[in-house]
Amino acid sequence: MIDIHPAGARHAVIWLHGLGDSGAGLAPLVEALALPADLPVRHLLPDAPERPITINMGYKMRGWYDIRSFDDPADRAVEAHVRESADRIAALLSQLVAEGFAPGNIVLAGFSQGGVIASFTALRHPAPLAGLLCMSTYLAAPEQLVEEMSEAARALPICYMHGIYDDVVPLSMGWDARQQLEAAGLTLAWHEYPMRHEICRPQLGDIRTWLLARLLP
């Protein structure tokens, strides 16, 4: 795990990468945000475990969960793996709190698979977090959201971002996630960009603006 921990940091962002990537793969994003020097923020970029991924012929790669097929939503994110990974991130949140970071000063962010785990964790976390940022992603086990969602999640600032031309996680899956969250009584900011399954330059500015609104005192 990459842990960028500037002196005096009272805020933290946990960044969760996509399938086949690593924490190091998201590190350039953190640098590109160029957050103000007078706002020291701790950035944690954990690595998913290596596991066989069915859709990739069973090859082992870093993945927060297996994807068995793209046809059935239940096979798109193996729930047992999702819960296992969410428990790991919840433990990381608890570790930060034990080190003195208030839950209200911690943002969970994720891209693709990482966004699935970020949302699954944040929406069930018992304490109010600073925010949830999800990029090019979807929801796992949405039919269980209303039953399992924490009371704290009702006031959670949420931002979803998606590429119009995404050919890995189609835009329709992002729309579905938005509708499922709104049906659960949640409010979220929504951004679309003329891009594929990636992070584009205009999006960086929106991420920066949203993060600063969550992190500034």
Rank of each mutant, 00 (worst) to 15 (best):
I106A: 07
R83S: 09
D72I: 06
D87V: 04
D21L: 14
D176K: 02
G131L: 11
A86P: 00
P142Q: 07
L129Y: 11
E84M: 07
Y165P: 00
I67L: 03
P28K: 12
Q203F: 01
A37C: 10
A141C: 12
A74H: 06
H11T: 14
K60Y: 14
P142W: 11
L211N: 00
E84Q: 14
A32E: 13
P46N: 05
R51C: 10
V97D: 04
D167R: 09
M57L: 12
G104F: 09
C159V: 02
E99F: 12
L171W: 00
R10D: 15
M61P: 11
H81P: 09
S94G: 15
D71E: 13
A98E: 15
S150M: 01
L93K: 02
W64H: 07
F111I: 13
T209C: 07
A80F: 02
R214W: 05
R62E: 05
F101G: 13
P103C: 03
A80N: 09
G185M: 04
G100A: 15
L215R: 01
D87A: 15
G63K: 08
L108Q: 07
R88D: 08
L156H: 01
D87E: 15
P194M: 04
V146F: 03
P157Y: 00
D21C: 13
I89F: 09
L45I: 07
P202D: 03
P49T: 13
